[in-house]
Amino acid sequence: MSPYEVYGALGSPYSMKVRAAMRAKRLVHTWTGMTAEDRLAILPNVRAPVIPVIRRPDGSWTNDSTPFLLSIEDEGVSLLPTDPVARFACLLLEDMADEWFMKAMFHYRWAYAADAEWCANWLMFDTLPNTGRTGVEDAAATIRERQTGRMALVGCTPETAPLIEASWKRACRLLEAMATGKTRFLFGDRISLADLGFYGQLKVMSVDPTPMAWLRQDTPYLYRWLDHADDASGIEGEWLDALSAPVQALLGLAGDTYLPFLGANEHAIGSGEETFSLEIENGRYAQGVFKYQLKCLAALRSEWSALSAPERDRLATWIGPNASLLSAKI
């Protein structure tokens, strides 16, 4: 059988997530860090020009990391806990990592001058091999200008910066508690989809100057944990019988921030608005609406509805009052 082919970039959190997942699942695959030339050949195979792009053994193509990994959950090593409560917690935390935690990745990468210069140069070095230093840095200036111009679209502004940083640091401290706790990963001694969601964002942040310095100073064992998550192909272990304290606290964070964020986005789209705002993390957050995040909320609601009433009640204890958003209908 042909291997899975993963085409991505070292600076892409979702590429890192998928590469680490394929390793953890022990599935035969190849990895290609795409150059500009590779992109011309690979991106036309998918509808949206975003990475990573995956070619399945049957020849079909896809590039949405979460649906892809869920579609191959039965292949290789499982990434979802078997207990329904833990499974839902895993899915919610992975979704939060992809859609909310990533705000910090984008913010830190382009809000600080040193980070923006470093990251743009690094990204272009990977994309334009054999171009020479001048060619790389000239191209980097263009992408730096483009990305900084997109910041407000995704909610990364000077006004939201303190809120985004505070929420990210809150999550990182909880992940540090996991890394220094009784198990190697969030749901036991085996890696989960949620671990990989956080890993993907943190992996690229671990080399970006400003977040790297904070991680090494304030959450040094989480920083080191990233190397364990990067290749968990040989790590054996079992799922926990109950949710750990860090997972319970992360669910509380999701209830405080991520679910209200999804709810506000849904309400704005339903009202025909182009932007939305809400009060979270002791600040006011605002951005443009995203239809993709309606799909995220719908998927979570579908999983929520499949749980028994006692299971939902247990989760709501940790998520808090905003668990009610999971029962609402679009």
Rank of each mutant, 00 (worst) to 15 (best):
P3L: 11
Y4Q: 09
G8T: 04
S12P: 05
M16C: 14
V18E: 03
V18K: 02
R19P: 00
K25F: 05
R26M: 08
V28K: 12
E37A: 15
I51Y: 01
I51G: 02
P57L: 13
P57H: 11
I72F: 05
I72R: 08
L79E: 01
T82E: 14
F88G: 03
A89V: 06
L91E: 10
W100E: 10
F101M: 15
R109W: 07
Y112T: 08
A113G: 01
A113M: 07
D115E: 04
W118E: 08
D126V: 01
N130L: 11
R133Y: 03
T134C: 00
A140I: 04
P162L: 10
L163H: 01
L163C: 10
I164L: 11
T183S: 15
R184F: 01
G188R: 04
L193E: 03
F198T: 08
F198W: 12
A213L: 11
L215K: 06
R216E: 14
D227N: 15
A232C: 14
G234W: 02
G234Q: 14
G234H: 12
G237I: 03
L240M: 12
D241C: 10
L243W: 06
S244M: 03
S244I: 00
A245W: 06
A249I: 02
A249D: 12
L250Q: 05
G252F: 08
L253K: 01
L262T: 06
N265R: 08
I269A: 07
S271P: 00
G272A: 09
E274V: 05
S277E: 14
L278G: 03
I280S: 06
N282T: 11
Y285W: 14
Y285I: 09
G288F: 12
K291W: 04
Q293G: 00
R301Q: 11
S302L: 13
A309V: 15
A316M: 07
A323I: 05
I330E: 07
